[in-house]
Nucleic acid binder design. Structure first.
Lengths: 210, 210
DNA sequence: CTCATAAAAAGTGTATACAAAATAAAATAA
DNA sequence: TTATTTTATTTTGTATACACTTTTTATGAG
């Protein structure tokens, strides 16, 4: 999630990334009250760029009512319903046509999924979905999913850290369907894959709440 | 689109609505360069709330690169692809269960569509879709579509002003399917309905560009 | 003690100032 | 002229101040 920044970026971009990462890695746990002034002094910026960051984080759903979000089971279901619709369609597009280079990248993601470190696996899995979403060629769809990225990350972490079985197998099956240009199968496999992710997350979530 | 405000709202809300409406009614035509200071002096606010408004408008896609958006044919297709996926699913949900009250509202929208003024028709058609989207019970989906609302409005205007044939008939068919609890039919009709909207918009758009 | 009210503190919205960055205009060389 | 560099102008990003709102804490009545 953390991206390497070449140039020194604006206070807004910096603070956005810092706050986002603090939320994502649990440094700012769900429910934490967010106050502009406190963050500003903490990060050494003025309130102005902090405010901008918080607004963006609110759009992404990471901050709700000036508190760090605590996704509920319902939120999880909602997220996956939308993902299934959009990424299912994206998988279909990808199967219609995907440049050889991207196809190779997909294969590479599967490979890393089999023998990479935990961190590499997480990154590869994210990239796997990213490539397929991009293949939709629909900038609105791409942006809509990008907006959900942070929340997805929260759950992807769960899935990988708890080592969901068959995750990489499913990626491979999707890859094969795309490679074989079987649009309907690619779509169905992607939908089933996300459904499995959802069920796994629900399972973990429930066992954590008990 | 314009909503009646009971209380005097914040400068941010006011300016957001003013600027948005200026874009939507063509007062600020596509391609217009947006300058914070100019708008601030124009509306009598400081730059701060104006900046907030512009950021929100950018999120909604009404402002791109500090210029008023000029949706392309590709944008139109992208928008409708996403709408078809999301609103198709919403229609299915609505057919699964819709409170009697909402069902009645849908019928009322159809009725207004048949014998209302142009403005009433536009509002009723918007409400028709709104009710169905709400019926999805998925707040993320609701919000995602809300975010596209302004751009949708731009096109809905086209559809109604140019009096697309069968528009209200299609609404009625969707309403009947929902009433009959035929989930698959409701979904298919909604998809077909939006497809028709898209084709009509494309037609108008092309004839305008020539 | 519980509820209501008042006082205090904290937090946010907005205006404004200024420096840095981006853009436009002007001057100069080819 | 066209291309290129310099200078001027505009525009944006950020910091800061202050008034207004909301929240918290304290105070008093029942």
């Amino acid at each position: 999630m953390t991206q390497s920044n070449k140039k020194p970026r604006s206070a807004y971009h910096q603070s956005y990334e810092i706050i986002r990462d603090r939320i994502l890695n649990g440094d700012l746990p769900g429910g934490t009250k967010i106050v502009e002034d406190k963050l500003a002094r903490d990060l050494g910026f003025s309130r102005t760029p902090i405010r901008d960051s918080l607004r963006k984080l609110s759009y992404e759903g990471l901050i709700v009512d000036k508190k760090v979000v605590q996704p509920t089971e319902k939120d999880l279901r909602n997220l996956f319903q939308v993902r299934i619709l959009l990424e299912g369609a994206a998988a279909k597009s990808a199967a219609t046509y995907l440049p050889a280079e991207d196809l190779k990248s997909l294969a590479n993601c599967v490979e890393i999924g089999r023998d990479g470190t935990t961190e590499d696996i997480m990154e590869a899995n994210e990239r796997f979905h990213e490539i397929i979403v991009q293949a939709s060629g629909n900038s609105l769809m791409i942006e809509t999913i990008a907006r959900m990225k942070s929340i997805i990350y929260l759950f992807r972490k769960t899935v990988v850290l708890h080592n969901r079985p068959r995750l990489i197998d499913e990626h491979e099956e999707i890859y094969e369907a795309i490679k074989a240009r079987d649009t309907e199968k690619a779509k169905q496999l992607m939908e089933a894959h996300l459904e499995e992710d959802l069920n796994f997350c629900l399972h973990i979530l429930r066992s954590q709440l008990s």
